[in-house]
Simulated assay, not measured.
Amino acid sequence: MTKVPFLDLKSLNAPFMDDLKNAACSVVESGWYIRGHYCERFENAFAEYCGVKYAVGVGNGLDALSLMLRASMELGRLHEGDEILVPANTYIATVLAVSAVGLKPVLVEPAENSYDMNPKRLKDAYGARTRAILVVHLYGRLCAMDEICAFANEHDLLLFEDCAQAHGARMSDGRGAGTFGSAAAFSFYPTKNLGALGDAGMVLTNDADVANMVRALGNYGSERKYVNKYKGVNSRLDEMQAALLLAKLPHLDASNERRREIASRYCAEIKNPKVLLPEIPATPSEHVYHVFVIRLKNEESRNEMQKFLAARGIETLIHYPIPPHLQEAYVHEFSGEYPVAEAMAKMILSIPMSPVMTDDEVSEVIGAINEF
């Protein structure tokens, strides 16, 4: 029986093995392992790739989110207790970051056709204490940024981006993930479209004050050694991960293009009427397909499909089975109803998506889904 893994990280990194080994050896031989030459080079390279002025490497994606928000608080642009609009169907990290710095997350229902934050529902969540919007480019698809930016401007709100799944996603005019708001957070967790070989994260911004504040907060609150101006934390991108990411960055666009090729086949060749496919954006580059999500009519059908595919050696995952407002950690903090987010959690299924998938593996997945 053919085995189709959901994601094979060893195969994913194999094409870059020589470059990764050389990068790792260079770091070891340098004798400098935190915030050195490679960190600076990767920060500059990723900022240029995304189209922003400043990038600050941090320890991981969650730290990137929380430090981005904390920086705005230290600069007096946000204050404890302010409300931040976030998607109701995001990964828990988005909500955790808001809570961690003393802000209040307010959930916004997603659009059923794109899974991203529904701009038409922003007005439902907006209130007297709303001060910012934190969008999540979920599954690698850019949100409806023109509409969301217009709402933010109309109501004088700050705009932040969670780009943990959207490395390289761009609109037709060149604007990309990480360029729309006050600041943006990226994760380089190993499974991401641009993945490290450990934890790593980054904050992007065009605001020098935000960049300097994030850098200080992530370095124990220190701008100068042994002089601690803020109550900071230890969250710095280490030289090893920076060097490995720098080696992989030149291959990101080709990797994303292969993801789009696979997604195009899925959308064209999956014909099972029980399966609802994601809407294809008008500009292909708006979506980098961190994962490819299909939808069944209900939880029972979804679970049956998952078992059916597993029996044929095809691995699948659910992103995400429990919405934030139903997680035990937040069960007493959200009082509203979020039927769209709850319904999606019961119907969605992520099928294999990787730039190193073979055409035969893609055909195997398509065939099995059509057979169900």
Score class of each variant (00 low, 15 high):
92 I>S: 11
262 I>R: 01
20 L>F: 06
27 V>S: 06
34 I>E: 12
169 A>R: 07
72 S>G: 09
276 L>M: 12
224 R>M: 11
110 P>A: 12
344 M>I: 13
254 A>I: 03
249 L>T: 06
254 A>H: 07
139 Y>T: 15
204 L>G: 10
23 A>S: 15
247 A>M: 09
170 R>V: 14
12 L>E: 15
104 K>M: 04
282 A>N: 10
85 L>G: 10
307 K>C: 11
243 A>V: 04
209 D>N: 09
350 S>F: 00
257 E>H: 03
105 P>W: 02
8 D>L: 01
140 G>Y: 05
237 L>A: 13
10 K>M: 07
269 E>V: 08
21 K>C: 13
221 G>N: 07
212 N>W: 00
152 A>K: 07
342 E>W: 07
251 H>I: 01
129 R>F: 02
238 D>M: 05
187 S>W: 06
210 V>E: 08
356 V>H: 12
19 D>Q: 15
342 E>I: 12
302 R>S: 09
39 C>V: 15
130 T>K: 01
185 A>R: 03
292 F>T: 13
248 K>G: 09
345 A>P: 09
94 T>W: 01
146 D>A: 14
91 Y>I: 10
4 V>H: 03
175 R>N: 12
353 M>W: 05
326 L>G: 01
304 E>W: 00
66 S>T: 08
362 V>E: 12
245 L>F: 07
372 F>Y: 15
319 H>D: 14
362 V>C: 14
284 P>Q: 07
254 A>L: 10
274 K>I: 01
273 P>Y: 04
246 L>R: 04
82 D>S: 12
340 V>R: 14
339 P>N: 11
197 L>W: 01
280 I>W: 02
370 N>Y: 05
78 L>R: 04
74 E>R: 13
232 G>K: 02
57 G>M: 06
326 L>K: 14
271 K>M: 12
266 Y>K: 09
215 R>Q: 14
269 E>G: 09
68 M>I: 02
13 N>S: 13
113 N>L: 09
162 D>T: 03
34 I>V: 15
69 L>W: 01
103 L>F: 07
341 A>T: 13
93 A>F: 06
307 K>Y: 01
273 P>W: 03
121 R>P: 00
76 G>Q: 10
168 G>N: 02
97 A>Y: 00
320 Y>E: 13
360 D>H: 11
195 G>P: 05
46 F>Q: 08
142 L>K: 04
285 S>F: 00
127 G>I: 00
239 E>K: 03
194 L>H: 06
71 A>L: 08
71 A>P: 09
158 L>G: 13
146 D>V: 06
256 N>S: 11
209 D>T: 05
194 L>S: 09
1 M>F: 00
148 I>C: 10
261 E>V: 10
285 S>C: 02
45 A>R: 03
156 D>Y: 00
52 V>K: 05
